[in-house]
């Protein structure tokens, strides 16, 4: 992919995925650059969620999933990495905010604690830093012992982002992180993405094309049709894909001719 600049962090080569006998994702080859936001767009059922769940091997939780091809993280085959270690390096924020039924503090400290950190002061530091990075600190600093479930939807999602940041991943996957949120909360998340990309490589799935155009540096467009289920149509810098798509399908989709 000629337009990607900077170091490439994630790369798929001829990657395919089946649910049982059903091929949900056809051969996909693309490079995801580091410290950029890459958006995955496309209609529902085009395999975009399946695609990003590849990078932290979340698809393996579904029985009957098979994959082929290569997926590299910093040049290493992710299927050879220990899956637990991979998931620490590649964090994920889910569509529906899913804080644990624990306090705000314990939610953020969850990952570091699970990874063996016991030092209270160090934990407190990490919690504060992560909450600050997730732009939530000012709102919750006085009641860190409140349940994470007591927060608003947008705050919950930022808590989940903080929770992900606390384990210091290299990549953050976001699966439609704002689809369950109101416009103001969505805006907050989008602003946050811009500051996060300085330190992290971000891959975001969204069904909202304006969002993709607003926040992302690169865009990959996936499609599904009667002949082939999920497959990649086009990938390139967001400005180019949106203003001057090479494929007719992309143009049709972006201009809203079908959804």
């Amino acid at each position: 992919m000629e337009e990607t600049t900077g170091a490439c962090r994630l790369r798929t080569i001829g990657y395919k995925l089946w649910y049982g006998d059903f091929c949900a994702l056809h051969e996909t080859t693309l490079d995801i650059p580091s410290n950029r936001i890459t958006a995955i767009i496309g209609p529902s059922g085009c395999g975009k969620s399946t695609f990003i769940r590849t990078f932290n091997r979340m698809n393996e939780l579904i029985p009957g999933v098979r994959v082929a091809g290569e997926v590299l993280l910093d040049g290493q085959d992710i299927f050879r990495l220990d899956v637990v270690e991979l998931r620490r390096l590649v964090g994920m924020v889910f569509q529906k905010p899913n804080p644990f039924p624990k306090t705000i503090f314990d939610n953020v400290a969850y990952g570091p604690r699970a990874h063996g950190l016991r030092d209270r002061n160090r934990l407190a530091e990490i919690v504060e830093k992560s909450l600050r990075s997730a732009a939530l600190w000012d709102e919750v600093k006085d009641d860190l012992s409140k349940s994470g479930l007591a927060l608003s939807g947008g705050q919950q999602q930022r808590l989940c982002i903080a929770r992900t940041l606390a384990v210091e991943p290299e990549v953050i996957l976001m699966d439609e992180p704002a689809s369950a949120l109101d416009p103001i909360a969505t805006l907050k998340i989008e602003e946050l993405l811009q500051t996060l990309k300085k330190d992290y490589t971000i891959v975001i799935v969204t069904h909202n094309m304006q969002q993709a155009a607003r926040v992302s540096d690169f865009t990959a467009f996936f499609m599904t049709d009667e002949n082939r289920s999920g497959h990649l149509i086009e990938y390139g810098p967001t400005s180019r894909v949106f203003t001057n798509p090479r494929e007719k399908t992309t143009e049709d989709y972006i201009s809203g001719r079908f959804s």
Binding site: M58, R88, G91, F94, N98, F100, C160, R163, V167
Partner: peptide, 15 residues
Amino acid sequence: VPREYREGSLALGTT
């Protein structure tokens, strides 16, 4: 227990 908790935890690199 909601599946989301399980996924959320595994995604943080826990066993």
